[in-house]
Structure formats: structure tokens, C-alpha cells
């Protein structure tokens, strides 16, 4: 599937607000008006208050844009990490979100430029310095959008416990698999507790694909809760090393492996995965 068709297959708002509530869109629009006013300074002198030469202004704005664009990627990667969608932990998908944020903010800044500067210059063609300063404002505006989404989560009453839940779920499953029965204390309980918490997060997420994962996790957890320790151990991979194993346990273990793979994908942010791949890990 090509980039454009994959973008079309997902609601555009998912790229911009990461499945958060629609009210955030209004918050973003409100903040936009502030930046529209700020674009007053984008025009050439007399509106550029600092006396730089064109080449120096381009160099400074170019460097600033690169730094801000990188910061935007890290910020969006952090937002993606908070979601329950494996896709939003992918560096490529975050790059798409990054492009969407920049495209949106560039359009807004350019409209602001036209509204506030055109009456003075009479031209819709941007000057090189305008482009440089506009790029800084666009990335700054995009960062402000991401910041609003971050801020909403920060002040939310529901703290995101996803990283702890994933860690508890996977650790409990590993212990349950490895430990002999007499040494197992509360691993099944911990796994169920973390699984239920992850399930709530998945079920309340508005992002594409989380519904399917929620359904798979719910089915697996329901079965796990009904099993005795002997069966629970099999469900996380402690299968007898013989051909006397019934396929029902293999199916349940395969379902667990699929869940584990998805959860591990959600255990690293996109930017961290980029860093790890650069380091060759």
C-alpha cells in the first residue's frame, strides 16, 4: 500500500490528535489564532524587527527549523508511545504524523501570512527570508499543537499506566512460564490485573486496530482466568516437550505470542526505536 493510500485509509484526525478527544481540535484551533497574530512578523522589513542580512537570517532560521523539526518528531513519538496502537510506535508512522502536523501548520501559517502581510506587500509570492521565518513559525506552531495534546494528558485524571502494565504483564507471564508450580505465588493474579488494565486502555482507545487487539486480549484473558495453574502455565508457553500436547493449548499459546509481539512493539517509542536501529541493536 502506498503512502498516500495508507494516509487515506486512516481518519486524518488520527494523524493530528492521536485518537484523543475531538475537543482537542477546538483547543488547537484556538491556539491557531494566537499564531495567526504572530505571523505578522513573518514579512520583510519593516515588519522584521531584528536587522539581519538575508543570508544570516536564512542560516539562522534554517538551523532553528531543523532543531524544531527534530524536537517535533521526538514530541510526536512520545505522544505515539502513550497510545495503545502498535502502529503509533512505528518510526515510519510517526514520520507520517510529523509530515501531517507540518503540512497542517504550514498551511495555517501561510494563510496568516496572506491575511496579515499581503495588504502591505501586495504579493502572494514568498521571499526567501519569509520562507525561513515561516518555516520556524510552522514548526513552532506544530510543536504547540503537540504540546496541547501532551498538556491535556498531563492534566487528565486518568494517568497512563501502559508502560507499567506491559512490563507487569510480560514479566508475570515469563515468571509463570519459567517457575515450577510450588514457587508460583501471585503471577497469574498480576498477569490478570495488568491484562485487565491494558484491556481497558485498548477498549477506550479510538485508534484504528486497537479494537481487534482488545478483542484478542479479552478472549485470551477470559480463557486464562478460567484455567487452573497447570493450564495457565501452558497458555504462556510451558508446553510439555512431547507430541502429547493437545492443539488447544498450542492455539492458546500462539494467541499469547501474537499478543506479546504487539505489546513488545508498544514498549518502545518510535524515536527510541530509531536510536536503537542507528546503534545497530
Amino acid at each position: 500500500m502506498g503512502t498516500f493510500s495508507s494516509i487515506r485509509s486512516i481518519p486524518f484526525s488520527e494523524f493530528l490528535i492521536f485518537g484523543r478527544s475531538e475537543t482537542k481540535i477546538f483547543a488547537i484551533v484556538a491556539s491557531e489564532t494566537v499564531f495567526l497574530g504572530a505571523t505578522f512578523f513573518v514579512a520583510k522589513p519593516p515588519f522584521l524587527p531584528i536587522p539581519f542580512s538575508d543570508s544570516a537570517a536564512l542560516l539562522i532560521t534554517g538551523l532553528l527549523t531543523v532543531v524544531l523539526a527534530a524536537a517535533l518528531y521526538v514530541l510526536l513519538s512520545g505522544l505515539g508511545y502513550q497510545t495503545y496502537s502498535a502502529k503509533f510506535h512505528s518510526p515510519v508512522h510517526i514520520l507520517k504524523c510529523w509530515a501531517a502536523h507540518l503540512a497542517f501548520s504550514t498551511v495555517v501559517i501561510y494563510i496568516g501570512y496572506l491575511l496579515l502581510v499581503y495588504p502591505y506587500t501586495g504579493s502572494i509570492v514568498l521571499q526567501p527570508v519569509d520562507i525561513g521565518i515561516g518555516a520556524v513559525f510552522s514548526t513552532g506552531y506544530a510543536i504547540s499543537i503537540a504540546g496541547i495534546i501532551y498538556g491535556e494528558d498531563y492534566f487528565s485524571d486518568n494517568p497512563n499506566t501502559k508502560p507499567e502494565d506491559i512490563d507487569q504483564f510480560l514479566t508475570a507471564a515469563e515468571d509463570l512460564k519459567e517457575k515450577p508450580e510450588p514457587e508460583i505465588v501471585d503471577e497469574p493474579g498480576q498477569l490478570i490485573q495488568a491484562g485487565d488494565s491494558l484491556l481497558t486502555g485498548l477498549q477506550t482507545s479510538n485508534l484504528e486496530g486497537t479494537g481487534d487487539l482488545a478483542s484478542d486480549l479479552q478472549d485470551w484473558l477470559e480463557t486464562f482466568k478460567q484455567r487452573e495453574l497447570q493450564g495457565q502455565k501452558k497458555m504462556v508457553g510451558d508446553l510439555p516437550n512431547s507430541d502429547a500436547q493437545f492443539s488447544v493449548w498450542e492455539d492458546r499459546y500462539n494467541a499469547f505470542q501474537d499478543l506479546e509481539e504487539e505489546l513488545r512493539e508498544m514498549d518502545n517509542s518510535a524515536s527510541r526505536r530509531v536510536v536503537l536501529s542507528v546503534r545497530g541493536k
Binding site: 484455567r227 510439555p240 512431547s242 502429547a244 500436547q245 493437545f246
Partner: peptide
């Protein structure tokens, strides 16, 4: 079934 009782086969008895 599935409400008050569930049954699971275990095949490794002979091993």
C-alpha cells in the same frame, strides 16, 4: 458449560 464448568484435555499423562 463455560459458566459453571470448563474442561481441558491434558495429553502428557503417559510421558
Amino acid at each position: 458449560y463455560e459458566e459453571t464448568i470448563v474442561a481441558d484435555p491434558h495429553g502428557e499423562g503417559l510421558d
